[in-house]
């Protein structure tokens, strides 16, 4: 009985959820398995209150290791490397350091255009399945900046945040 309505529910969900998703900086793939690779595609739908985006900085969440960002024509790509909070096992080896922050800068993405920023890495098998992993992003527009870094506290809904950090839901590897 309900099954027939499912597309309708989905459409309703899309209608309700879409504006928020379009207004925020988000990740294209909202779910990923631990212990596998993850291609993070950051979607940047607009500038900072009308100003063109000139830089995107992303902080790697703890447990997202062996990260490699994808270069973008017209943007300078830099990374900040350092020690992880804990050592991780990757392909039978212990990894203790890697990319902590990725920065695309020197670009010019006008407010009326859309673009994506991509990086690929490994989600450690030690990460807790069922929970969310947050990728705090600072969007710079010359002097102005938008900080997509809010992380909901316990008992708080993500929808109540004004500038939530992009996030994925971790699931068990199949």
């Amino acid at each position: 009985m309900l099954a027939g309505f499912r597309p309708l529910f989905a459409a309703g969900f899309l209608l309700a959820g879409a504006p928020a998703a379009f207004a925020h900086v988000t990740l294209e793939t909202g779910e990923a398995a631990i212990g596998s690779s993850y291609k993070a595609v950051l979607r940047v739908p607009h500038g900072c209150e009308g100003k063109a985006t000139t830089a995107i900085r992303v902080k790697m969440p703890e447990g997202f290791i062996a990260v490699k960002p994808m270069p973008k024509p017209g943007w300078k790509l830099e990374t900040v490397r350092g020690k992880y909070a804990a050592p991780y096992q990757l392909w039978g080896e212990t990894v203790t350091e890697g990319v902590l922050e990725v920065k695309w800068s020197g670009g010019d993405l006008p407010d009326e255009f859309y673009d994506e920023f991509v990086m690929r890495g490994q989600l450690s098998a030690d990460l807790p399945a069922g929970e969310k992993l947050y990728f705090p992003v600072v969007q710079e527009c010359g002097e102005a900046a938008e900080r997509w870094i809010e992380i909901p506290q316990a008992g708080e809904s993500e929808d109540s945040l004004e500038k939530p950090a992009p996030a994925i839901t971790l699931r068990r590897k199949k």
């Binding site: 900085r57 902080k59 705090p136 600072v138 900080r147 870094i149 809010e150 506290q153």
Partner: peptide, 10 residues
């Protein structure tokens, strides 16, 4: 309260 670039306390 913006504690560091990526870290905000509310």
């Amino acid at each position: 309260i913006l504690v560091s670039d990526f870290d905000m306390v509310t």
